[in-house]
Design a protein around this nucleic acid. Structure first.
Length: 339
DNA sequence: TGCTATGATTTACC
DNA sequence: GGTAAATCATAGCA
């Protein structure tokens, strides 16, 4: 059974028009002359099928006549219904697509990096996280931090402007297609559902372009991040005073050169570096000292002397402080208790 | 420019 | 999670 015959068979409910009636033009004309309502439909269909054999002018005139025919809306409604049933049975399953996991991943990443979603300081959280991961000094962090934020803001701006362009193009194309289909629905049966389906197809096509945009934005953020981290990686020697403070602690605790967390914090504060830098320094120092004690002997002696001198100075100050004019702590306790 | 010193990172171990 | 050991990468100097 071909398409036309199938469609005509489906029209059985509309006035009891039989396939034989429709298939035979003579029979249609005969019935038309009898004034039966089904003859109208048969005639219309016959004219539709014959339209391709006619000249353009004839066809236009015929089209106009058909458009104005009183039975046209009913016929199109039935044709739409049949079309809907056949199309839905084929495509219905494909339409309920779950959200694309890749798009979801990209969305989550762009949101976490502060590129999409509400603006929250141009991704300062990400910058701070990157800085923390690098364990960089708090002193030089601000310049690179603001640089990172500026670059991220630039990416964000490009992303949003491209997204806007994409949405505009998508909506323009959708409107164009919808208008076209509405226009065509005057001459061929197109249901609103079919238009909706077409819109969904267009959106699916455009979403693949959107995914490419999201993907390239993610790549740009990744490159920026790695560059930012690489920049933090650049080594800068600690200043002389900081190295001296660290060495003093190291050589005065040579039997156990493992500063506690509190000591590390204290040293970090004194040297103007981070606790993790203090840990790195002690880690490097321990292993390098152990590997080549001979080389570090001179340095060790130097700091031993320095420590001894400092200790002597402290004790001299203490003994001065403990002179009869000022009572020592034991005497203080006694004084307090006697009160 | 090559060498050494040194801060940072990585990997494995406890 | 802290540390040892190896390694990387760069600053600084002759």
């Amino acid at each position: 059974m071909d398409d036309q015959t199938r469609m005509l068979a489906g029209l059985g409910g509309l006035g009891g028009l039989s396939q034989a009636d429709v298939g035979d033009p003579d029979s249609v004309r005969k019935q038309q002359s009898l004034g039966q309502p089904q003859q109208d439909i048969g005639d219309i269909l016959q004219q539709i099928m014959a339209i391709t054999d006619e000249s353009l002018d004839e066809a236009q005139a015929r089209k106009h006549a058909l458009n104005c025919h009183r039975m046209k809306p009913a016929l199109f409604s039935v044709l739409c219904e049949i079309k809907e049933k056949t199309v839905l049975s084929i495509r219905g399953v494909q339409e309920e697509d779950p959200p694309d996991p890749q798009i979801m991943r990209l969305d989550n990443m762009l949101l976490a990096e502060g590129v999409s979603g509400p603006e929250k300081g141009g991704g300062s959280a990400a910058a701070a996280a990157a800085a923390a991961a690098a364990g960089g000094s708090p002193n030089d962090g601000s310049i690179e931090h603001s640089d990172y934020r500026a670059k991220l803001a630039q990416i964000r701006q490009i992303y949003h402007s491209e997204l806007e362009k994409y949405e505009q193009a998508c909506s323009e194309f959708t409107n164009h297609v919808m208008n076209l289909l509405r226009e065509q629905s005057r001459t061929r049966p197109i249901s609103p559902k079919e238009i909706e389906r077409m819109v969904a197809i267009i959106h699916r096509k455009f979403s693949s372009i959107q995914m490419q945009l999201k993907q390239s934005t993610c790549e740009a953020v990744m490159i920026l991040r790695s560059r930012f981290l690489d920049a933090r990686r650049k080594r800068r020697n600690f200043n002389k005073q900081a190295t001296e403070v660290l060495n003093e602690y190291f050589y005065s605790h040579l039997s156990n050169p493992y500063p506690s967390e509190e000591a590390k914090e204290e040293l970090a504060k004194k040297c103007g570096i981070t606790v993790s830098q203090v840990s790195n320094w002690f880690g490097n120092k321990r292993i390098r000292y152990k590997k080549n004690i001979g080389k570090f002997q001179e340095e060790a002696n130097l700091y031993a002397v320095k420590t001894a001198v400092d200790a002597a100075n402290v004790s001299a100050q203490a003994s001065q402080a403990n002179s009869p004019a000022t009572p020592n702590s034991e005497e203080k306790i006694q004084t307090i208790s006697s009160d």
